[in-house]
Design a protein around this nucleic acid. Structure first.
Length: 275
DNA sequence: CAGTTCGCCTGGGGGC
DNA sequence: TGCCCCCAGGCGAACT
């Protein structure tokens, strides 16, 4: 599932494609369920005739900046993908195909239909939107500090695993990087959030950044069907220490890794190493 | 109000 | 080989 490093990889890839002067010509919908604040008709009216200027990231959100300051905001959720294809190429589960006047198309592909797409008249409207406004710090934001985290954590009694997935605190951590970060920090996913020390807050930030940087260098983690482009997958799964390794020996102490559900999320951890 | 559970959705993997 | 069941999970809504 795309988390911060996978979204960053995708955006980096897209920004290296050459569609920035091409005009959007027509849109074909297979399914419009991902459109949240527009209809097929208003979406078509909004984007047709525009060009894409650049693509940026906020947490797990992908931001398409169009001509005339228009914005398309995409969240891939679990299985969403964005492909840049020749007109005669086909992805597996296309939902929206955006045809450009250069013989190619941008395809939003999503087998589970969980993704979301919103449109905004300008960047400020995007920043004022409920889903963006409530986001916390991004992983590499300089203002993400131990003190900030400690302050967010101090009144929380829920398990730290749940808190790390809370996008209003750190925007971009998902299930894989939450488990990996806690393992590196030697913190049990069951630990009550307000029992995490200031020192451990710094550890969480450092380890989270380290894993995410390494993941981005490896073009993300491929589990299930993640691809950042058609037939291009990441390879960070090779370096995962706990996620997907249930019942395998801990790479630090050798004891068997446990798997459980915390707030409905699969969680793999080492009972011995993580306190 | 904080914390937890539910439901959205469907391909694919496991069991038989 | 085919069929059934159920799991995967981000996040908003509903619930406790």
């Amino acid at each position: 599932m795309p988390e911060f490093p996978e979204v960053a990889t995708l955006i980096n890839w897209l920004n290296h494609q050459n569609f920035f002067d091409a005009k959007i010509k027509k849109i074909i919908f297979v399914d419009d369920i991902v459109l949240k604040n527009s209809t097929k008709k208003s979406f078509i009216n909004f984007v047709c005739g525009e060009t894409i200027k650049k693509i940026s990231q906020i947490g797990k959100f992908i931001i398409f900046h169009l001509s005339n300051n228009k914005i398309i905001e995409i969240h891939l959720r679990l299985e969403g993908k964005i492909f840049y294809l020749l007109n005669n190429e086909k992805s597996k589960f296309p939902m929206i195909e955006i045809y450009l006047d250069n013989g190619k198309k941008i395809v939003y592909d999503d087998s589970r239909k969980f993704g979301t797409i919103n449109i905004y008249n300008n960047y400020q409207d995007l920043l004022n939107s409920t889903e963006i406004k409530k986001l916390g710090k991004q992983p590499f934001d300089k203002t993400l500090t131990a003190n900030y985290l400690f302050n967010c954590f101090k009144n929380k009694t829920q398990k730290i695993k749940t808190t790390l997935l809370d996008q209003t605190i750190i925007a971009g951590i998902g299930n894989i990087y939450a488990d990996e970060t806690l393992f590196l920090c030697k913190i049990s996913p069951f630990r009550q959030t307000n029992k995490v020390s200031l020192k451990e807050c710094q550890l969480i930030i450092d380890n989270c950044r380290e894993i995410m940087s390494k993941s981005i260098r490896n073009k993300g983690t491929t589990v299930f069907s993640y691809q950042y482009a058609l037939n291009h997958s990441g390879s960070f799964q090779k370096y995962l220490k706990v996620y997907g390794r249930k019942n395998l020996p801990c790479l630090r102490c050798g004891s068997i890794l446990y798997w459980t559900k915390i707030n409905g999320r699969g969680t793999t951890y080492c009972k011995k190493c993580q306190k």
